[in-house]
Design a protein around this nucleic acid. Sequence first.
DNA 1: CTAGGGTTAG
Length: 578
Amino acid sequence: MEVVSRCRTLSHIKQLHAHLLSAFPRFLSIPSPTRTKLMDLYSISPFGSLPLAILLFDHLNVPSIYDLNSLLRGISLSPHPSAVYSYFRSSLSSSCLKLDALSYSFALKSCASALNLPLTCQLHSHVLHLGFYTDARLQTTLIDSYAKSGVLDASRKVFDEMVTRDVASWNALISGLAQGDRPDEALRLFWRIGKEDDDVRANEVSVIGALSACSQLGAVSEGRRIHEFVRANHLDGHVDVCNVLIDMYSKCGFVEEAREIFDGMECRRSVVTWNTMMMGFAMQGRTHEAMELFERLRNGVDGVKPDKVSYLAVLCACNHSGLVDHGSDFFESMKVSGVVPNVKHYGTLVDLLGRAGRIKQAYDVIVSMPFSPDIVFWQSLLGACKTYGNVEMAEVASRNLVELGSRNCGDFVLLSNIYAAQSRWVDVGRVREAMKLGEVKKVPGFSYIEISGMIHKFNNGDRGHDKWNEISVKLEEIRFRIVDYGYVAGTGFVLHDIGDEEKEDALYFHSEKLAVAFGLISSPEGSTIQVIKNLRICGDCHTVMKLVSKVYNREIIVRDRSRFHRFRDGSCSCKDYW
DNA sequence: CTAGGGTTAG
């Protein structure tokens, strides 16, 4: 058995197998624990020997539950984990095999990866009937399966019902909440670790979940608190923890701090480390630094090579600063180095070409790609058409968006604005009619803003905010001051018009306007206003932000998806944008 | 005898 646990490569396993066959006449006569262990090795080894394990299993006259479980384990780790269920099902009807908690655990895991919610529920009720429900690891698997199927309340329920919880149970729920768009709850749960269950301490997985929640919220102060926790508990020796710290600081707008972590790492950097750092620079438009890192990576530092995400990062960096030719070169060199471009690479290339005004070229890429374009491609092309006033291509893009079933009001508004810019009012009316008829989904706009360590969430047209009176007074003031400055409000952009659903453009701007006004009343003069996770920065909103930064002499940083816009003294770091 | 929780991406 000792020899078995030392097997590290496929040839080791095969040697062992041969050795066992020389001692025993047949595979079937190898005594059970050893035989099962051998199967287990074949089953879970990362060298593609799972088919061999399956072959051996099918060969067994009387497989034990151990044999079955080691097979299920291997399949659940393979690229096709849903195959677990066919073995599971056939064993359900077999009389000689009694499935145990472990078998259910693997079956549940495969449900989660297949996003099969009904089956998850069914297995859950089996588990209850069979009396396996008290098994903590099985319950953790249930939490995870429900979370991956998007039913976080069910995960919570299982979590609350648990009698004895360990770190993994906490982590399963924290990660579930963080990935399921409920980052604030994830953070609250993180700080509860160790407070109610004795002997449970947060570990590296817990902080990874909590930090990824911070990145989503753009909550630096919270992130710093967790960073402190990481240092105090000596968790900063883990590469993955460092990666998430880099990501958190970058996504909150503090690349410098991300860089400090990157440079000061005591453990070896992985590709993910490099990619995360490059993405951080790309988001901020610091293209040079991103490209420099890419070159170092290409020269094989840290013993790692660029992968598809590395190429994506460098493409994003080029996109952000409008370096079309560099971007195209990277795209070509990626193909040469054997990295196959995927949707995201093509998406970035198309966006890059479109923003640079090479609309026809962008269109040619879309129609000649090796796969069919999704909604994002046409949205990106439509955005470029708006910038360059290309009505013909805008109509092509819109037609494709409708065909792909887009219900996003932004797509319609964009087309309408393109017509409006050409004074084609009949067409504008036609688009607005179509919006009313076509059940176009109104995007619930919201944004987060951080002011002295506190995160505030603003909803679309949020008149119910407790500072509403002050905010509305401030909005009026902003309006007058920027009008004095010579700004003429364009279509739909009326600062005091919050909550007016009749004006489609207003749909986008509410939360930004609220957040900026709130920032101006709540933060000390001269300080930076950080608006995080905005709906969309476009057109008039961009203009107004620039003016506010000049008129009020304040820096405003806005994160719009994967881009940071830094408004300062009347200009913006995103020059290629509008 | 075996098991559960994790980071980068248009």
